[in-house]
């Protein structure tokens, strides 16, 4: 180091910090003073923020902050704002007759969009997010309906449910388990007849005797033609749609032990607007009548 003017790098003339490691000096390029003040300002801001807003974690919550702000309250306020904005169209939907509601009515769009949300929250667990159902849970996209596919029929199903014991108006029917009073041969014959009804490969001879069994035991609900009866939720056996599968084994299983699909009543859980909305949504999925 030079005498007199210590702490200057001889090559660049820049001041050094005086730190020296094995002859390597640290040059001092000062930060601007305002940068330092900005840094202090952020500290002051940070302290103020901790006082004003929720900040310090406690055992089961954080300090509330003087402003009483919470993200939860903010979301609630936003939801309330949206609800207030939709109040008019929601009231319109609540009082509307679904059958005569025009497709370009704002209440219709509100219903379909809101119904999609209701469906995902309450219905998709059984019927699937895409409403395609599953084995034992009806596909709501097709053109086949057990209890009817009109808006009123869908709304009644949603409101009261099926075969539940909580709603007196629930849709009800109960197929006997024929395994208890038909011979295995009779069930096999009836099965061949059902396969014949739906145009599948079958044993014609057995089917002929199965027709007798069918006329005696099944036709009261499934009708002579096998096209079913929506009053009783009896499936159409002549079409290509099978709730429990249309294979020989599955049909034998259905006849022997019967089926008993249950849907809860949504009337107590959803409000009028939600029921109408989800009805509109289901109706426009591709199979509405």
């Amino acid at each position: 180091m030079m005498e007199g003017r210590t702490d200057r790098d001889p090559v660049t003339g820049t001041e050094t910090t005086g730190h020296d490691w094995d002859g390597i000096q640290e040059l001092n390029t000062p930060l601007p003073r305002w940068w330092l003040w900005t840094f202090y300002l952020t500290i002051v801001w940070g302290i103020g923020y901790c006082i004003a807003y929720p900040a310090w974690p406690l055992i089961d919550r954080a300090t509330a902050g003087l402003l009483g702000y919470s993200t939860r309250a903010e979301v609630e306020a936003q939801i309330a704002k949206v609800d207030a904005r939709n109040a008019e169209v929601a009231a319109r939907l609540a009082s509307a007759d679904l059958a005569t509601l025009e497709r370009d009515d704002p209440a219709y769009h509100y219903g379909v969009a809101g119904g999609a949300a209701v469906f995902r929250a309450h219905c998709s667990q059984c019927h699937g997010a895409g409403a395609a159902g599953a084995l034992g849970y009806p596909n709501l996209l097709d053109d086949d309906w057990l209890w009817g596919g009109t808006l009123d029929a869908i709304a009644a199903t949603v409101r009261h449910g099926i075969r539940n014991d909580t709603d007196d108006d629930a849709r009800w029917s109960e197929m006997p388990a024929y395994g208890e009073f038909l011979e295995v041969e009779q069930i096999a014959a009836a099965t061949e007849f059902v396969l014949q009804l739906s145009g599948q490969a079958h044993d014609a001879q057995l089917a002929a005797s199965g027709a007798v069994v069918f006329a005696d035991e099944c036709a009261s609900c499934h009708m002579e033609s096998g096209t079913g009866d929506r009053e009783n939720g009896a499936p159409d056996l002549t079409d290509a749609i099978w709730l429990y599968g249309g294979s020989r084994e599955s049909i034998i299983e259905s006849i022997t032990n019967s089926r008993f699909g249950v849907m809860p009543a949504w009337g107590p859980r959803l409000d009028e607007v939600e029921i109408k909305a989800v009805t509109l949504y289901v109706h426009q999925l591709g199979g509405g009548e």
Partner: peptide, 18 residues
């Protein structure tokens, strides 16, 4: 194309895509 489900079987056995 609607992927969930990929197709729907209608009662007359025809296949429908949405």
């Amino acid at each position: 194309p609607v992927r969930n489900p990929q197709f729907v079987v209608l009662s007359d056995g025809s296949i429908r895509n949405a």
